[in-house]
């Protein structure tokens, strides 16, 4: 077996894919992290304290997972959805009744979206209550708040797209709140909706925000957020004083 693994990982094909051998020794386990674009956000070594489940509850990772689920299901939904007042609703009905697994696809997207908002809020609470915002992690906390607002924006803009009564009136109520801002209120509302009330212009704008601008923003800020976790010395659990036995 080990002979086979050795021959396999020394083959020219493997070597062209990966610049490390089979990761069963410290050197190759380090190289996995440093030579792979998906792994390089991780440190080579992590402290056992930061891996404790009761410390982080895995909420940051779960937020990212829901975001990935949303990206995949969202991309698939885009194949069936046209953001026009005439077609949006019937597209959703068609998706649910005619497209194989269409209802499941939409359900997955909807429930992941709710889960993501919930988990991101819980993640913020976890970071606050463990004091993980303290120096040198102040700026990463600020990025986290930005990500929370982007998450709310992504969910809110997506809420309009089915173009049913629920969507229409939720966005009407939600955007009317913006109009109460004393100086710029009506300007902000008109800017969001592209007109005095929710219509085709609003649907176009919410669609563009929902499938492009906000997800790109989330992807970008999340990358910085995770990168900074590493740069600031991993999870704050590493800074915790030693437990006295």
């Amino acid at each position: 077996m080990s002979n086979f693994v050795q021959r396999f990982t020394q083959s020219r094909v493997w070597r062209s894919f990966f610049r490390h051998g089979w990761p069963d020794n410290p050197l190759d386990r380090s190289l996995v992290m440093t030579t792979n674009i998906f792994f390089h956000l991780h440190p080579v070594k992590v402290s056992r304290k930061s891996l404790k489940a009761t410390y982080s509850l895995g909420l940051g990772v779960i937020s990212l997972i829901t975001f990935l689920v949303l990206s995949i299901t969202g991309l698939l939904l885009m194949f069936y959805y046209v953001p026009t007042v005439e077609r949006a609703y019937s597209n959703i009905v068609t998706l649910q009744t005619m497209v194989p697994f269409g209802q499941l696809l939409r359900n997955m997207h909807r429930w992941s979206a709710h889960l993501m908002v919930l988990v991101v809020v819980l993640h913020m609470a976890r970071v606050f209550y463990t004091g993980a915002y303290k120096p040198p992690r102040e700026f990463n906390w600020v990025l986290g708040v930005v990500l929370l607002l982007l998450t709310l924006g992504a969910s809110f803009t997506g809420y309009l797209l089915p173009w049913d009564q629920l969507a229409f009136w939720a966005i009407t109520v939600g955007t009317s709140v913006a109009a109460y801002e004393p100086l710029m209120g009506s300007t902000i509302k008109t800017f969001l909706l592209g007109g005095p009330e929710v219509g085709q212009e609003a649907l176009t704008r919410f669609y563009a925000l929902h499938v492009m601008l906000i997800p790109l923003g989330i992807a970008l800020v999340t990358s910085i957020h995770i990168w900074r976790v590493r740069k600031d010395g991993g999870l704050a659990a590493n800074q915790a004083p030693e437990e006295k036995p």
Binding site: V69, L104, W111
Partner: peptide
């Protein structure tokens, strides 16, 4: 998510009016 999506459908009301 899969279990949730198999058991509960996302709401869809009448077309926006």
């Amino acid at each position: 998510l899969l279990f949730m999506s198999l058991s509960v459908n996302a709401p869809l009301e009448e077309i926006a009016n």
